[in-house]
Design a protein around this nucleic acid. Structure first.
Lengths: 335, 335
DNA sequence: AGTACTCATGGAAACGATTCCATCATCATT
DNA sequence: AATGATGATGGAATCGTTTCCATGAGTACT
């Protein structure tokens, strides 16, 4: 079928044409020391033959394949899409390919994916973790170079030490939530709900903390990664608790579900219910009414995470990027 | 820094423990012929040692690295995000990693990316092509296994033969456009504009064709890949041609820009301007007014493309997936 | 019994890079 | 002039797998 084609140009060919040994060619090409004259001859030969080093050979020798892996819960979610974009744009400047996997916020799939990466000898990975500490701790011990993005893993007990070493790039949802809740309480709201997705432990914890005395545990509900599940969670909450006057959606899919469910149930926004959504997506402004949001620097999170895993130099423990409350028209005074 | 750790388990270790040669182990593990007894001994040894074959070694030997590459113009665009999702979900069932690159609809970046893939010896690639036929033809000749998704390359002249061989998975925007335009003309519209992005040649051609006599070349405008550019194109069109009564946005970013620009310029939808957008994104329903759209099976396009490149069996020339006009409230009669 | 054929099997040769190590030349120091 | 230090250089080993080929055992057929 495929034509046999001209044999691939290898380092050996270059060496031969330049009249030097392969070792010298390798050194010249990877910036080792060599005399000016040899260097020129090698470079000359390489361009003359249009030599492209094979990543395969290099990888095998170095016992690791280049590139970075990126694990996100759902690439269809605008937030994670922008995060990916940030990673990709940083990686491109290093000329490193990026392998993406989606976990669906499912620990098992995540473990599967990580297994696959290990098999490929990928040793650098950026992850929005869904799984337990166990898995990630063992991945780290296996020599994987992990950077967490958007959230880190809850490290219960023995793995705490290992996992606290893992750098993470987070957005400061704690302060975002605080200002959002201040805003809502300032409008008179007391019964404030929270729509969360499984795996958003940190964000939920921040919500609980920021709510203080006002916290009603029955008002925080969890959805799985799908749109349906998000809708069900939102509709369920709205129907179950008629006294609810404000709700914070932990992500844009949750926010979308909230708007839809409210519309379906004839709950008017912001008249009957105030809504704040995490993450400023372009359609938040187009929505009716335009949504008040807690904007997150999704792309920057990805970019910084990629920098951390690629530069590999200094390793700050954790960087936290600021969020911003953008007020539009989806919140009103309590009535 | 990193602990030397226990040496990797290789096929040699397995062979030794099982008391057979490495060749036999390889055969057993990759489904070759072997006696029942040997097979059992090998499998036993492999599980006992928890042996994981190294993709590196295999790749070098087979002169190709596994996995698929996927090139999209912009992962932030909901349509391409869903396309990616489709590819990923198909690839996962084959346990093949997916490397994603974004081209920004730029021929040069695309060529760069392809160069990188060649260097990695990736020989399977799914692309939403932006570049010229030249580049893709040479990629195909270099032995790359290409499948186009969403659009194919315009093949002028000599490369036509090579490129027509490349399978493609498209959505049937021709028929989508036709019904959309019938719908609009049925409402009395005559001056219908088209917002396109560079690289959408096929879609623009379909628009021209479907418009027939009504076509006014001045009403089709092009934007580059960015949000700003899309906005500028939309606003420009609206300001320049006050006689415009309907517009079709060639993608959801264009649609978003159109809504925004209309709002900014006090053009009321659908009263002053009817709008139809390509691609049904979740927010189309949340928008005010809810947008009439030409729905495309983005995820299926990705999935089928992945199937084509992974199964590698029969190669149908091109598959075309149906689109659907979903009528909401963004179109009204001409006034 | 001899020949031909099938099958399981293992040794060894790729694959293409990097890198260890020995060699040799050059130059400075005593 | 002898010694040591420095630096450029090339041969060969190495990474872990697949696959070619030769070997030997077993079977069927003449």
């Amino acid at each position: 079928m495929s034509t046999p084609g001209p044999r691939r140009i290898t380092i050996k060919d270059v060496a031969e044409l330049a009249g030097v040994g392969v070792a010298t060619v390798s050194r010249v090409l990877s910036g080792g020391s060599a005399s000016a004259e040899t260097r020129e001859r090698v470079l000359d030969a390489a361009t003359k033959l249009d030599y492209r080093p094979s990543a395969l050979g290099r990888n095998l020798r170095q016992q690791r394949s280049g590139g970075v892996a990126l694990l996100v819960p759902d690439i269809t979610d605008g937030f994670y899409a922008r995060l990916c974009d940030g990673v990709l744009s940083c990686a491109r400047s290093y000329r490193e390919p990026v392998t993406i996997g989606v976990t669906g916020d499912d620990a098992e799939q995540e473990a599967d994916l990580v297994g696959g990466l290990l098999e490929q000898s990928m040793d650098r990975i950026i992850a929005v973790p869904s799984g337990d500490g166990e898995m990630w701790a063992s991945a780290v011990r296996a020599g994987l170079n992990v950077v967490f993005a958007d959230r880190r893993v809850w490290s219960p007990g023995s793995h705490a030490r290992t996992l606290d070493e893992v750098p993470a790039v987070l957005s400061d949802d704690r302060s975002g939530l605080r200002t959002a809740i201040e805003y809502l309480t300032g409008l008179g709201h007391r019964k404030i709900g929270f729509l969360a997705r499984q795996g958003m432990n940190q964000r939920v914890a921040a919500f609980r903390e920021a709510m203080g005395d006002l916290l009603d545990e029955d008002l925080v509900v969890f959805a799985r990664a799908s749109r349906d599940s998000a809708y069900a969670a939102a509709a369920g909450l709205f129907q179950r608790r008629a006294d609810l006057t404000a709700v914070i959606a932990g992500g844009n899919m949750l926010g979308e579900a909230a708007v839809l469910a409210a519309r379906e149930l004839y709950v008017r926004i912001p008249r009957d219910l105030s809504l704040i959504m995490f993450d400023d997506v372009p359609w938040a402004e187009l929505c009716s009414p335009p949504l008040t949001v807690i904007a997150q620097p999704a792309s920057d999170v990805g970019y910084r995470a990629a920098e951390l895993v690629l530069r590999h130099g200094r390793r700050p423990r954790t960087v936290s990027l600021p969020t911003e409350l953008i007020v539009r028209s989806s919140c009103g005074p309590r009535r």
